[in-house]
C-alpha cells in the first residue's frame, strides 16, 4: 500500500487513492470473463428468442461457444480462488501479523480484526442503510457519510462473491456430467441446472442495472467512471461518495483547513 500516495495532485486538482494496480487487473479479468460468460451463456438460456441464434453464432456457434464458455468459467473460478488467497494473505500478514507482533493475538481479537476489514459489513453500514432511506424519502437533506467502502459497494462486491460459489460448482457439474454420474445421482444435474441458470440471471440482471448504474448510468458518472483504470477518485467523487474517509485522509495529510463541506443533494456538481 505504501507505494500509493493517498492524495496526488494533477493539474492543480486533488486525486484520492482507491485501487492498486493489482486490484484493477483483477477487476479487468473479472469483468471480461463475466461478460464472455454472459455472451456465451444467455443465448443458450434464451435459445428460443430471435436474438439468441445470431449472437450465439457470433460467439462461436454450438461447437465453439461452449468451449469459450468453459474457458471463461475456468478463468473466473481461478480468479475467485486467487482473490480469496490474496485477501487471506493480506489479512494474515497485515492484521493478524500485526496483532501477533504486539502479542495480542487471541481468537477474540482475530475475529474482531476480521470485522474491521474494509469489505466486511459492519454496524455503520446498517445505520447508513437506514440513513439513506431517510434521505431518499426527504426526511433529511444530508446524505449518509460513507467510509472507504459504502454498503452499496460492499453489496456490489459480495454479489459476485456469493454468485461464483453457486454458479461455478454447478457449471463444473454440468461440464463433467459424464464423469460425475459415476459418483452422484443424475438429479444433481437437475439441481445444478437450476442453480446455474437462475443465479446467472440474477447476476446479469444485477450487473446490467445496479452495478452499471453505480459506475455508468448515474449522471455524475456517465458515460463511465474512470477509477477502474486510474485507481484514483476525484475530490468531488470522494466528497460525494466517501465523505467520512475524505475528511479522515485530509486530516491525516495535514489539510484540515482545506476540507470542503459535504455535498448536499443538488449542490454536488456544477450542473
Amino acid at each position: 500500500m505504501a507505494k500509493y500516495d493517498p492524495i496526488v495532485y494533477k493539474g492543480g486538482k486533488r486525486y484520492f487513492y482507491r485501487f492498486s494496480a493489482h486490484q484493477r487487473v483483477q477487476h479487468v479479468i473479472l469483468f471480461s470473463s463475466v461478460l464472455t460468460l454472459a455472451l456465451t451463456g444467455f443465448p443458450l438460456r434464451h435459445a428460443e428468442e430471435p436474438w439468441a441464434k445470431p449472437l450465439y453464432d457470433f460467439m462461436g456457434g454450438t461447437e465453439l461457444a461452449p468451449l469459450i464458455h468453459r474457458a471463461a468459467g475456468t478463468v473466473l473460478l481461478g480468479l475467485f480462488v486467487y482473490h480469496t488467497i490474496y485477501w487471506l494473505a493480506l489479512f494474515i500478514k497485515n492484521d493478524l501479523g500485526g496483532l501477533k507482533q504486539q502479542g495480542r493475538l487471541t481468537f477474540g481479537s482475530g475475529v474482531k480484526a476480521f470485522f474491521t476489514q474494509e469489505m466486511v459489513p459492519n454496524k455503520k453500514d446498517f445505520f447508513d442503510i437506514l440513513h439513506v432511506w431517510k434521505y431518499l424519502l426527504y426526511f433529511t437533506n444530508r446524505p449518509p457519510r460513507h467510509d472507504r467502502m459504502s454498503w452499496r459497494e460492499k453489496f456490489d462486491y459480495f454479489a459476485p462473491y456469493w454468485g461464483i460459489p453457486i454458479l461455478g460448482p454447478a457449471g463444473v457439474l454440468l461440464w463433467w456430467r459424464d464423469e460425475i454420474t459415476h459418483f452422484l445421482p443424475g438429479i444433481v444435474l437437475n439441481a445444478a441446472y437450476i442453480m446455474h441458470t437462475d443465479e446467472a440471471l440474477l447476476a446479469v440482471l444485477f450487473l446490467f442495472f445496479v452495478h452499471w448504474y453505480n459506475v455508468h448510468y448515474a449522471p455524475e458518472k456517465f458515460p463511465a467512471a474512470t477509477v477502474w483504470l486510474t485507481g484514483y477518485l476525484t475530490e468531488d467523487e470522494m466528497i460525494h461518495e466517501h465523505y467520512a474517509q475524505y475528511v479522515k485522509i485530509m486530516i491525516e495529510a495535514g489539510l484540515e483547513d482545506e476540507v470542503k463541506p459535504q455535498h448536499f443533494a443538488g449542490e454536488e456538481y456544477d450542473w
Partner: peptide, 17 residues
C-alpha cells in the same frame, strides 16, 4: 428536488470532525 426536505439536518453540511 435536491433542496427539499421535511427536516433540515442540524449539522448542516459542516464537516463532522
Amino acid at each position: 428536488f435536491p433542496r427539499f426536505a421535511f427536516f433540515k439536518d442540524k449539522e448542516g453540511n459542516t464537516p463532522h470532525h
